[in-house]
Design a protein around this nucleic acid. Sequence first.
DNA 1: ACATAAAATGAATTATTATGCAAGTTTGAA
DNA 2: TTCAAACTTGCATAATAATTCATTTTATGT
Lengths: 334, 334
Amino acid sequence: MKRSMPTTANRPARLDIEQMRLITKVARLHYIHGERQAEIAEKMGVSQASVSRFLTLAQEYEIVRTIVVPPEGLYPDLEEGLEEAYGLDSAYVVDISAHEEGVAQILGVAAARCLSSEFKGGPVLGVTSWSTTLREMAKAMEPRSGTGIKKVVEMLGDLGSPLLQHEAALATLQIAKALDAEAVFLRTPGVMPNPELLKVALGDVHIQTALRLLGEVDIAFVGVGPADFHGPLEEGDNFFSAEQLAAVRAAGAVGQLHQRFINAQGLPVDTELDKLVVSITLEQLRHVRRKIAVAGGAAKYTALAAALAGKWIDVLVTDVNTANFLMKHASRGT
Amino acid sequence: MKRSMPTTANRPARLDIEQMRLITKVARLHYIHGERQAEIAEKMGVSQASVSRFLTLAQEYEIVRTIVVPPEGLYPDLEEGLEEAYGLDSAYVVDISAHEEGVAQILGVAAARCLSSEFKGGPVLGVTSWSTTLREMAKAMEPRSGTGIKKVVEMLGDLGSPLLQHEAALATLQIAKALDAEAVFLRTPGVMPNPELLKVALGDVHIQTALRLLGEVDIAFVGVGPADFHGPLEEGDNFFSAEQLAAVRAAGAVGQLHQRFINAQGLPVDTELDKLVVSITLEQLRHVRRKIAVAGGAAKYTALAAALAGKWIDVLVTDVNTANFLMKHASRGT
DNA sequence: ACATAAAATGAATTATTATGCAAGTTTGAA
DNA sequence: TTCAAACTTGCATAATAATTCATTTTATGT
């Protein structure tokens, strides 16, 4: 637990399965059973130095992950205020003290923790794995069973670079694995260049299966964002053009849920663009019992306010600053 | 990261909010940014000791969590569970994606790899080479020296077709060679039609040598199977008749070790059939220091459970499905 | 305000973990 | 096969973290 800490994701080549077994075993003995390296070394017939090295490897391979979760209840006033103001089931506000590089990371981790209690309620969980926050959450999720969740389905097609798509798939899988559920992918571009291509995509059996499942989602991780480029997205990445985005904004859109646009009151903004998107529809989303949003950061202020106004969110995990903004907004608006 | 590890869910009373923030900050600095306790101490104007204490608190309050995520295809939790539930020295669970057919092959290969560390402890190794699993293991074994094993002795006479007998002999030889030891064969039918023939067989000098050695076996590859025809065996192949098998089952037998029958509790089922078998006796087996079983597949579920209940196994190599069955069985039974 | 118990703190000490280095192994090329 | 480069491994030791204990601070009852 020392200098190697920055754990910058080295990408060490794949390793022998036996090696993996060994590393995992050592990691469990140390981190779960709390045995000292010396004990483990003796038990396994190697030197303490080797055990130390195994543990380092375990970090590099992300077999062990250390996460820091801001405790909940740090901002009871804000949390209660949000719940009250927007009729939420619950709100979690996390401390994001210094302008940390990644709001997403912290929120993701916080979400993983907060939501253990929220993960009950139905057999189908919807996710949007391309969101950074969600991917961080996936990494930080602890394997847990007995949640009653049977399927984890992606609610939005691919956006962004192919690399991102791969990571998204991985995240979906991780979540599914952690919940001991089946992963259902939506491996198709999330935004099509024209309606015809969307029709083609809908011909695929897997796509159909996934889309059908979107009508039965019980719990959803709602993806909230501005009606604009944001995060890792750029023009051309399976995404809208600058003109298209300008057009929907002109039509009143201030944000979107899975690329379905909404105005400041949270009402759907119907445009042609809607026919280009492969994702859960607002209609379908309305029927989801528990809609969870994990989002924060200045870029999302307005979109979040709109989503909340439209009652698209039941559970919110966000950071202090965003929470403050939302509270001000609520008092002004009401 | 030391003695407090067992993380016995202390339930320390709620703590000051400011305190919580402090702890979280320290935890982040340490675990995410990788700063040493001394650095943090200086930065925050407290002693290193205090930082250490903060981190301990962070553990207790579960503000930091360390999770161990086993790589795909590894089941350390099942392994530990089995060891715990059945008092095993060690358990190896291998991933056997779908294809139930090749259980033997996969297990055999896995066993050859896993058991390199288990091959120590005494000069006499007992095997039952007619088992498919064991033959696969033999094929996959890599030469290794310095195991201390001097003799490899067959613990059960021939079963099955002559072709099978040949393969069995070959397997025994391969294992002996790989361990740089002497092979001791038991080339006689494993199940005699009547007690007299068994007496005749015992007249043979080689047989006598082998049988004498069975009293000195230090490590044994226990052969576990159902009290029935199984694998490549059919009526007439140096084997019991359907009636005989029905009879022992009626007497309570649910499985057998080298054709010595046991009931669901793992206790010997004494019958006349015992006098027809040329193999290590349960009495002798009881004195074997290290009893290794490599077995899996639905056909052996019950027999394995019985063998484990009777403490006939010290080391188990099996597949995920069987492991899961055994865990369920254990929790139900206890 | 005073005394006393409890909690917090840091210096020094002890325990644990990480790592430089040399010796032993494996791998690969000739 | 033979040699050398690339890896591994364990030992000794440096680096880091936990704990003890004496001291100070805080809380609480009188």
